[in-house]
Design a protein around this nucleic acid. Structure first.
Ligand SMILES: [Zn+2]
Ligand SMILES: [Zn+2]
Ligand SMILES: [Zn+2]
Ligand SMILES: [Zn+2]
Lengths: 162, 162
DNA sequence: GCCTGTGTTGTTATAACATTACATTACCTA
DNA sequence: TAGGTAATGTAATGTTATAACAACACAGGC
């Protein structure tokens, strides 16, 4: 049974379940939505789910090559476009890198906590901060379409390590 | 005399004064800090100050070439590193582009409002939102080093235009 | 004035990230 | 099983950014 989703991947957690439930949820969602989780797309998602770390597109591509699942950049970028577009993964703009989504609820808007030391990425809900952002924007007459909040720093593990 | 700093560049404003006071403040600050605002650096800052738009490094480089002030990427990236490092400009991670800072106070931490239509970029103080971000991060045991908030949408002018 | 260290710029090359374009294949459905 | 749509394979190219080293400029001490 799927354990309650604890979004804090910095905590010690049963990571095997992150991986298997991530794939399972993705398969179920795709089936329900009539989306095709093809071998390339599934493998890219698996690769991202293997860690909670941000991976560059070319890192992922190298892994795909090992599995003979495509060796040219468009292959991985198309898979990532699908995964990001359907909420299975996120792009981290600061790093030009990608990470699996930890809580692929229908519509969630996360902020990202990126460890500078280990590149692990945690998500936490942007609301209610997002509303404050909108308010600040509205003060300048700006109509918000999308918000991006990326925080860098040190995860609990890496803090303890030193 | 320097007009009171209205950070909302979306408002109609005396833009000539943005440009001249931006350069003047930069020169004064560099003098005070023993920094060298060399011709290349000054020209890059001027180019950024000419508009409030985000410019790619290679766009800036093209302008530098016209002035015979360096034609290779490292020239512009080094100048941008200097300007960003000293608070005269900012990098917009979402766009991989750069914009002049509108309020080069000693230490200010802005969030950015980026118009998808015209690429103009406004800054507005991140506080008190930043504190909320820190609190959300602390809930996960994460030690924040730097926050980045970039909002995309439509500026007042571009809203009116349609 | 000249040496010398430090910081800046010039230049070449290359790394890293991403897309266009078009041919081919797989899948669905009528 | 034919035809349409979605996905993939592949080559080429575009865009953003850095490494490495040579040359030059400026400042302070001799
Ligand atoms: Zn997510
Ligand atoms: Zn860490
Ligand atoms: Zn202005
Ligand atoms: Zn605009």
């Amino acid at each position: 049974m799927p354990q309650p989703p604890d979004p804090n991947i910095f905590q010690k957690h049963n990571h095997r379940s992150c991986r298997s439930s991530g794939m399972k949820e993705a398969r179920a969602f795709c089936k329900a939505q009539g989306l095709r989780l093809t071998p390339v797309r599934a493998r890219v998602l698996e690769i991202l789910l293997e860690s909670h770390k941000a991976l560059g597109a070319y890192d992922i591509l190298a892994r795909l090559k090992e599995d003979n699942l495509g060796s040219q950049p468009p292959v991985v970028y198309r898979a990532l476009e699908f995964l990001v577009g359907n909420g299975f993964a996120h792009k981290l703009e600061r790093l030009n890198a990608f990470a699996a989504c930890c809580q692929p609820d229908a519509a969630h808007e996360p902020m990202f906590l990126i460890c500078q030391n280990c590149r692990k990425v945690a998500e936490t809900p942007l609301q209610p901060i997002g509303r404050e952002i909108d308010r600040a924007a509205a003060d300048l007459g700006f109509a918000v379409v999308s918000r991006m909040v990326e925080v860098t720093g040190t995860c609990p593990t890496c803090q303890a390590g030193t």
